[in-house]
Design a protein around this nucleic acid. Sequence first.
RNA 1: GCCGAGGUGGCGAAAUGGUAGACGCACUAGCUUUAGGAGCUAGCGGGGCAACCCAUGGAGGUUCAAGUCCUCUCCUCGGCACCA
Length: 777
Amino acid sequence: MAYDFKEIEKKWIPQYEEFDGYKGIDFENDKEKFYMLTEFPYPSGSGLHVGHAFAMTAADVYARFQRMQGKNVMFPMGWDAFGLPAENYAIKTGRNPKEITKEVTDMFRSQMKKLGFSFDWDREINSTSPDYYKWTQWIFTKLFEEGLAEKKEMPINWCPKDKIGLANEEVIDGKCERCGTEVEKRTISQWVVKITDYADRLINGLYDTEFIEKVKAAQINWIGKKEGAKIRFEVKGHPEKLEVFTTRPDTIAGATFMVIAPEHALVGELLEGHSDNVSRVKEYLENIKGESEMQRTDASREKTGVFSGLIAINPITNKEIPIWIADYVTMSYGTGAIMAVPSHDDRDGEFAQKFGLEINETYTPDDQMMEEIEKRGMGEKAVTYHLRDWIFSRQHYWGEPIPMVYCERDGWVSVPAVDLPVVLPDVEKYLPTDTGESPLANIKDWVETTCPKCGGKAKRETDTMPNWAGSDWYFLRYCDPNNQDVLADMKKMEYWMPVDVYVGGDEHNTLHLLYSRFIYQFLWDLAVVPKSIPEPYKKRISHGVILGPDGNRMSKSKGNVIVPDEFVEKYGADSLRTYLMFMGPFDATMAWNERSLIGVRRFIEKFYNLIELHAGTGEVTDDESKKVIHQLIKQATEDVAEFKFNTVIARLMETVNTLSKPGFKIGTNDLGSVVKVLALFAPFVAEQLWSDLGEVFSVHNQEWPVYDEKYLLSERVNLSVQVNGKMRGLVSISPDAEEQTVILEVKKSEKINKYLEEGEIRKIIYIRGKTINFVVG
RNA sequence: GCCGAGGUGGCGAAAUGGUAGACGCACUAGCUUUAGGAGCUAGCGGGGCAACCCAUGGAGGUUCAAGUCCUCUCCUCGGCACCA
């Protein structure tokens, strides 16, 4: 029978429904546990993307490998299903996002099964299920109770068209992600989570992990810890001193002016005063008000600013220095005020140049300066972070309701655990209201409630959580997905945690990864996760990106989107999976190429034919076949462990090419070993071939083959002969031949001898089994 | 500007400091007469009839030996960015 992937898939896919080989078993202490995690997708209406297929196939290959190595593997999957696209679709169609989510997750699940991912479906979770978000809400109440969440006035990105607050990540190039309108800054009351309290721990915790370098760097960079000093400058005629943050207190003698942000409190005070400069300051503020966030943060832009009329005193030089207002200084970093050292800082220099301010070229940085500053009480050492507190409110419908109640008497009160979850109510309209509140604000009898503390009248919070909330702790829920009493059973977490390998995309290296590490550390402080495990993820690796056939990032507008289903249909899931893993290194950026996929398809066909040819013949494997097969096993064992899948597939191809030549005899056992290697990549055809070899279901819970060194030893090896470092020929010789034997053999070759006779042999370097180099001169 | 990853045939890519280009795609020639994006054999970095010579972004260096290690430099991609 010829290879027919449709028949094979039709036959085997249903068999895995009841298959327990893919399930992780709690407390299976006879085996080593292995927790393999790949990011749970946002299930969008357009279905599983080829990027998902790529990342998940890689994780699947690795999970299968660990399983065959005899480990008890947990490889779960779920849905991160709250979010804007479902809400937008609901707004457009008037349909309930709950229904839409159900349809879409059903579609995703079925696509994943068709692709042969070995997920443990008993552990499936859904962030939009009340059973799940009960605990997302519970975590929030704890943050509040521990003083890490508070509601305060915060400037946010505001879309004037949609009348909605946007998170930074929802602003693309200064424009609203949904409608493309330029966003404005607006101040509204928002829940804020103090992730900055954990900044140092989020850095230090990285040293306990085996994250790849790039991920560690991205996190450290994002947190942006800077050590420096806070220094106070006297302002003439003003009672309060002006505090600045600087990383270079040693350069203070070079500070010839100061700059404050337009939002700085001092500017507000100034406008109430009678300075001659007030009108000019007002004019400047008016000018920059119209600027978008994007314009303001464009580093290449020419600097603008205005003299405030205020004069400060440099505490070291005692010179009077002017205070300027400029938008290149922002309130969100440091103190919103700087001492400008134009001779040392490019931006300050540029500013001084433009406005004709003094530049002190003669000063030199002074190592003792900090000591002096502290002694004189002018300032002290300080640390500042780029990481900002996490704005946790969204005025959207499709998210977890923030489980808080506002009482006139008691202020904000968290909903007690017994009353959780606060279920997201059904609404008529999913659009935000004119006031910028979430649609929940329209449901009177939901909003109006009683205070959990005093029993008096109170109102519910109508904002919902950001889409990061559900993914902050999902890896814990997989350990115990149906627990009604706690977020996950402690013993089960102790067994499964930490995540051994977490495969994900670079786009989540800062936000998701940092947020979830923060929440885990917070839960650790609450002692609701195992005390012995301070970090949730042992190893984080990031997968590559698949570009469209034109070499560009896939996008609907470019029309270069690859939909995996189409290729499953055309060439089969096995070919698609194997091609995805063969494209290049696991972490590289690679362009889609259908011709190469066809090449992989040819290989699978050839593989199929090879096994079919030998199956049931009762052959005894000959030495040459043994050698080829054991080389394959060795390379596969080593390379799969390092996520080097492309080279394993190359070796599989070589193996099949060699063994397909006439004359090889291969027994069932050895055929089985080769099928097991293929099973990682092409699970369905491997299952078929395993069955054709007369073996019992399933190839996927077999033991990984072990190679025997004795088959890898060769009697002869081609030794490269170099003369003065240049390759001059090969001699076929025993790999452990003595140097004298090699030299005798080399001398037999006229071709090589010619070079040896060009001079006297001064030195011979012989590397057994590899090379011999004659230094002639 | 900072951080990270890279630069090897027409293309995707391989190479514990030891035969550069495995494997795949595309291409060429020959054989097969083939309803399936076929199969088989051979060739396939550049130059040269050849012996050989030249080739891993560029320039130096270490070494018997460098794509691989070191120094400098150019470029590409990804992330962050008026970070004080």
